[in-house]
């Protein structure tokens, strides 16, 4: 497997040079291979979500580099980062982050609006991915009318609609019961089998101890304290 992401000497400091300055990440270096499933673990406040957002190009490091294939994304302007987020990453957020007043179909269409595809093509792609998750029967339903598990599946469908190379998932089982968590693991396994690289931030042992996760980085106080490989 080839190296997909190379992180070197990454630092993230919030509110720099202000009284409430806070160091979130210190001297992080890691590599993620293409097709790999990686878990970031650690207690709350250890820096998992911050690292995940840096890997997903949703914020910039204070120092250090993030090499995504051939380009250092830490140096790219926001316009290019948006394009990378749109084309390379699919995000599954802890709170699902669906637009509550939009329908299931409209939510899944969202990542493709800025693409070159026509509305008809976008609808077709969104419908196809929703069909995979057995949500085709509730296309016009508002997401606020859905159960937690259904919302989770819509969120995953939205993450996949642009056929991204890397799935970023932040505490994906935080709001799911154990049965739904197992369903999610199965979905992730299928995606990984299809060649997707998956990076998950979690403190749920049922996830990071599962056979799906190939490597785990354990974080404490913004530093990687341990790396586990399977």
């Amino acid at each position: 497997m080839s190296q997909l992401i190379i992180v070197e000497r990454l630092h993230k400091i919030y509110h720099r040079h202000q009284p409430d300055e806070m160091t979130a990440l210190q001297d992080i270096s890691l590599q993620i291979l293409a097709g790999e499933v990686v878990a970031l673990t650690g207690p709350s406040g250890s820096g998992k979500t911050t690292l995940l957002s840096l890997l997903g190009c949703m914020s910039r490091p204070t120092s250090g580099s993030i090499q995504l294939r051939d380009s250092n994304v830490a140096k790219l302007p926001e316009r290019f980062l948006a394009k990378i987020r749109r084309e390379t990453f699919g995000f599954v957020f802890q709170q699902y982050n669906l637009v509550r007043d939009l329908s299931v179909l409209e939510n899944v269409m969202l990542p493709l609006y800025p693409s070159d595809q026509s509305l008809r093509e976008i609808k077709k792609a969104a419908t196809a991915v929703l069909d995979q998750f057995e949500l085709a029967g509730m296309l016009k339903k508002k997401v606020k009318q859905l159960s937690g598990g259904e919302q989770q599946r819509v969120a995953i469908a939205r993450a996949l609609v642009a056929d991204p190379e890397i799935i970023i998932a932040d505490e994906p089982t935080a709001h799911l019961d154990s049965e739904l968590a197992q369903d999610l693991l199965q979905i992730l396994a299928v995606l990984n089998a299809a060649g997707k690289t998956i990076v998950i931030a979690t403190h749920d042992p049922s996830i990071y101890q599962s056979s799906l996760v190939q490597r785990r980085f354990d974080l404490r106080h913004g530093r990687i304290v341990e790396e586990h490989s399977r």
Partner: peptide, 12 residues
């Protein structure tokens, strides 16, 4: 925030 996170540009 959601729109930006999933790849919308500021101009969009």
């Amino acid at each position: 925030g959601v729109l930006k996170a999933i790849g919308w540009e500021t101009s969009d």
